[in-house]
Amino acid sequence: MNPLITRTAVLLFTRPAGEEAACKSFGAGGRGADAAVAAQLIARATAMARQAGVDFLCVESGGQVGRTFGQRLAAALSYGFGRGYERLVVIGNDCPALTPALVRQAVRALETTDAVLGPALDGGVYLLGINRSFFESEAWAALPWQTAALGRALRQCLRQAGAACLTLRPLADVDNAHDLARALRQLPAGAFRRRLHRLRAAARPVAPALRPPRRPAAVAAPLPQRGPPIS
């Protein structure tokens, strides 16, 4: 194996499905159903990472350190570099359109460039690759994570550090029911798409069966009004 590749890892930064469902509503019909959708997204992200051909690290919320998202992500990167890796490719659990080919492209690119960004359509990033020498924990923790300004701020941070950066094609991420519906329209046919469709279909209310209109009860004709018989 390429010695450069052995010093590279894919890091999945995530949280358990229940915690994900507590923060995001996928329109699946309640917290339990949303957690089932989140579990599918996490499983897919894990599969993408494991197919990259390099080591795989997973940092769930239980192992994350810090008060803000930026602090926790910076700590996760510090953990990965502390394990001896020189290059990390970080992904989350919210981009179902991510493919193993794109992750492998990012891994290969880090052999010859300093950073890789996968821009999300909402202004954030769905993938972040970085060489150890261009990572600065405090500066990264202060970036506007989880906002539409992140992508621009991250590129500026990398430019100021003198890092050469490769940009992958933009992809949509999934943060709510609208995003999930759009992703389902765009995903190729397959088992993953079918599972998500089943979860959404199970949550849709069943329309009551139509009954024929009830006919009004027949009203008896009034008896003729007759006087008493004449004696």
Rank of each mutant, 00 (worst) to 15 (best):
G84I: 15
G84P: 04
Y85C: 01
Y85D: 08
L88V: 02
L88N: 07
I91C: 06
I91V: 14
D94Y: 05
P96R: 03
P96H: 03
A97C: 14
T99W: 09
A101N: 13
R104I: 00
R104T: 03
Q105T: 08
Q105I: 02
Q105M: 10
A106D: 09
A106S: 12
A106N: 08
A106K: 06
R108C: 12
A109C: 11
E111T: 03
T112C: 01
T113R: 11
A115K: 10
L117M: 15
G118I: 00
G118Q: 12
P119N: 02
P119R: 00
L121N: 07
D122N: 11
D122A: 12
D122H: 04
G123L: 03
G124Q: 11
V125T: 01
V125P: 08
V125G: 07
Y126H: 14
L127I: 14
L127K: 09
L127T: 07
L128S: 02
N131M: 02
N131V: 10
R132T: 05
S137M: 14
A139G: 08
A142F: 11
P144Q: 05
Q146T: 09
Q146G: 05
T147R: 15
A149H: 13
L150N: 05
L150D: 03
G151P: 05
L154N: 04
R155I: 00
Q156I: 00
Q156H: 04
L158S: 02
Q160P: 00
A163G: 09
L166I: 03
L168E: 12
R169Y: 03
R169G: 11
P170K: 15
A172W: 04
D173K: 07
D173S: 12
V174A: 05
D175G: 08
N176S: 10
D179M: 02
L180N: 05
L180T: 00
A181F: 07
R185G: 05
Q186R: 13
A189G: 13
A189V: 13
G190W: 15
G190D: 14
F192D: 03
R193W: 15
R194K: 02
R194M: 06
H197M: 12
L199S: 01
R200N: 00
A201R: 01
A201D: 12
A202K: 00
A203H: 08
A203T: 12
R204W: 10
P205H: 15
V206N: 02
P208N: 04
P208I: 10
